[in-house]
């Protein structure tokens, strides 16, 4: 019971934190330079792990899907399954999980280190709002970088799927491309990128919240970084399911 209350309290605190971030992001002054700097760091640090993690997924879908589709003589349709699965589901979810593992944990560690060293309080003393200068640029950077990475992983995932279907699996290239372009619509891309924006915001928000609430020493910083990764993965999967249900209901 006490654990449940604690959980509810934490959820409430994160929600209040989210409202704070929204309010600060809507008002001046904005530290755009700081945000761009964080974005550049995130892209540089994430691009290789995210690419390496998502690219094999397309290949696996082709590998397994081809087996199944062959049974019904539908192997020309493989690309429509591959395209929708990559664009709508696997690329956004997995890219966000990797952003959480790489960027989320490093943001939480950075903010947490600043906190335990007293740099956050020092900022406040200099009448620079630490939320405004440290947390909000990180949240916005995550929100913008994740969809960008998603576009890259879409291309990589479909390419690796093509590689395993056409040259290695013996599907006709023309049929593959035809079903891909016929079934995958811009709506699929927007759905994926929209999900990525939500997931990216969750990554930045949790990293900021756990980072700025770090208490104690080096171990607490490590714990904040770990917790960011684990909790964000939970949030990503739960939100993913809710969004999928909602989209199915609306019929997009």
């Amino acid at each position: 019971m006490r654990k449940l209350l604690q959980l509810l309290e934490t959820i409430g605190a994160v929600f209040a934190f989210f409202l704070d971030v929204l309010q600060i992001a809507a008002t001046r002054p904005r530290y755009v330079g700081e945000m761009l700097r964080i974005m550049a760091v995130l892209v540089r640090r994430c691009i290789i792990p995210v690419g390496l993690a998502v690219a094999p997924i397309g290949a696996v879908i082709s590998l397994q899907g081809l087996d199944i589709f062959r049974m019904f003589g539908l192997d020309r349709m493989l690309s429509s399954l591959l395209g929708t699965a990559i664009f709508r589901e696997y690329s956004p979810a997995l890219a966000s999980v990797m952003v959480a593992a790489q960027a989320g944990s490093s943001i939480a560690a950075r903010v947490g280190t600043m906190k335990v060293r007293g740099q956050i309080d020092a900022l406040a003393v200099m009448s620079v709002d630490p939320m405004r200068y440290v947390v909000v640029p990180g949240v916005i950077a995550c929100m913008l970088v994740t969809p960008l990475l998603d576009v890259m992983t879409n291309v990589l995932g479909v390419f690796s799927g093509w590689l395993f279907a056409v040259p290695l699996g013996g599907v006709d290239h023309g049929a593959f491309m035809e079903h891909l372009t016929a079934q995958v619509t811009p709506a699929d891309l927007w759905v994926g990128m929209g999900k990525c924006m939500i997931f990216g915001t969750a990554v930045g928000l949790l990293a900021g919240y756990l980072g700025i609430n770090t208490k104690g020493g080096a171990e607490a910083v490590g714990k904040a970084a770990n917790d960011t990764v684990v909790y964000t993965i939970v949030i990503i999967l739960v939100v993913d399911y809710v969004v999928s249900m909602a989209l199915l209901g609306v019929g997009i």
Binding site: P49, L52, A53, V97, M98, A101, Q102, S105, S106, A109, T113, A218, V221, G222, A225, N226, V229
Partner: peptide, 14 residues
Amino acid sequence: VGVATNRAIVHGAV
């Protein structure tokens, strides 16, 4: 410690 944990997570997943 932070660098080691971060690398462990990311390299392990990839």
